[in-house]
C-alpha cells in the first residue's frame, strides 16, 4: 500500500455548462493535514465533496486509500467507509440523541453490538469533551457542541481520512475555538485531514500544506510559513491581504 491517502489527477467537474473544477491535481500523504482556502465560489467545498462522492466528477481520477472512485457503487461504499466528513451545518440527526447519533452508523453498517457501539461512542464523546450531554437531543446543544458531536459521530466509524467542509463558518465567534481545539487534538493523533476553512491561525499551526483555490483551480500550494510570508501568485496575495486586513 502506498503512503498516499488521496490522489486527485486531472479532475474536472461541470455543473451544466459551468466549469466548477478545472484540472485539479493534488496528493495527500497518510497522516498529512491539508488546509484548503480561497474565496467563496472557488470550488474548494466541491472539491472535497468529490473525495467521498457527495459530488460526481466528470473526468480525471480520484483514488482514495488505493480505491479508485467510479460509478461502481461498491467502490463508493468502500471509500465512504474510510472517509469521515464534517459539514458546515453539522447535519446531526435531530430525532436521535447525541449518543444515538454516534451509535447508529456503527450498529447498522458495521453491525457492532449495541453495548460495544455505545462504549466506543462514549469514548469519542469524551475525547471531544461532550460526554455529559450524551442523552440530550442535538436541538438542545449550542452550535459548537453540535459540531463536536458531529466530529465524534464521524470518528465512531473509525475513518482513516477526515474531511472538514467549513466546520466553523456557521458558528458564533465564541464557539469557534472549542471546535478548532477539537480539530487540533484530532490532528495530534495522526489522522489524515483535509480541511476547507478560513481559520488561518489553524492553518498556520496545524497544516502541513496550504492549498489556495480560485475560480475552480488550484492557484498555489505551499507549506504554511512560505504560504503566508511569501505568497508566489498575485491572486494569493490579494486574498491574504483581504482576510488579514480585519
Amino acid at each position: 500500500m502506498s503512503d498516499l491517502a488521496i490522489i486527485i489527477r486531472n479532475m474536472n467537474k461541470w455543473y451544466g455548462k459551468f466549469h466548477v473544477l478545472k484540472n485539479i491535481n493534488m496528493e495527500v500523504k497518510v497522516g498529512e493535514k491539508i488546509v484548503v482556502c480561497g474565496p467563496s465560489g472557488s470550488g474548494k467545498s466541491t472539491m472535497i465533496r468529490c473525495v467521498n462522492r457527495l459530488e460526481e466528477h466528470q473526468s480525471g481520477d480520484i483514488i482514495v486509500d488505493g480505491i479508485e472512485l467510479s460509478d461502481d457503487l461498491k467502490s463508493i461504499d468502500k471509500v465512504r467507509a474510510e472517509v469521515g466528513m464534517c459539514f458546515q451545518h453539522f447535519n446531526l440527526f435531530p430525532h436521535l440523541t447525541v449518543l444515538e447519533n454516534c451509535t447508529i452508523a456503527p450498529q447498522w453498517i458495521r453491525k457492532v453490538p449495541q453495548k460495544e457501539a455505545e462504549e466506543a461512542a462514549m469514548r469519542y464523546l469524551e475525547r471531544v469533551k461532550i460526554a455529559d450531554q450524551a442523552l440530550k437531543y442535538p436541538g438542545q446543544l449550542s452550535g459548537g457542541q453540535q459540531q463536536r458531536v458531529a466530529i465524534a459521530r464521524s470518528l465512531c466509524m473509525e475513518p482513516k481520512i477526515m474531511l472538514f467542509d467549513e466546520p466553523t463558518s456557521a458558528l458564533d465567534p465564541e464557539m469557534i475555538s472549542e471546535v478548532l481545539e477539537t480539530m487540533v487534538n484530532l490532528a495530534e493523533t495522526g489522522m489524515t485531514m483535509v480541511c476547507v476553512t478560513h481559520e488561518m491561525g489553524f492553518a498556520r499551526s496545524v497544516a502541513d500544506r496550504v492549498v489556495f483555490m480560485d475560480g475552480g483551480e488550484i492557484v498555489e500550494e505551499n507549506v504554511p510559513e512560505q504560504f503566508f510570508s511569501n505568497p508566489q501568485m498575485d491572486r494569493t496575495q490579494m486574498f491574504l491581504e483581504q482576510i488579514i486586513r480585519h
Binding site: 467521498n52 462522492r53 457527495l54 461504499d77 465512504r80 467507509a81 472517509v83 469521515g84 466528513m85 459539514f87 447535519n91 446531526l92 440527526f93 452508523a105 447498522w108 453498517i109 458531529a150 459521530r153 464521524s154 466509524m157
Partner: peptide
C-alpha cells in the same frame, strides 16, 4: 449527505 458520508 450526512447519511451518505457515514456510508448508509
Amino acid at each position: 449527505e450526512a447519511a451518505d458520508s457515514l456510508g448508509f
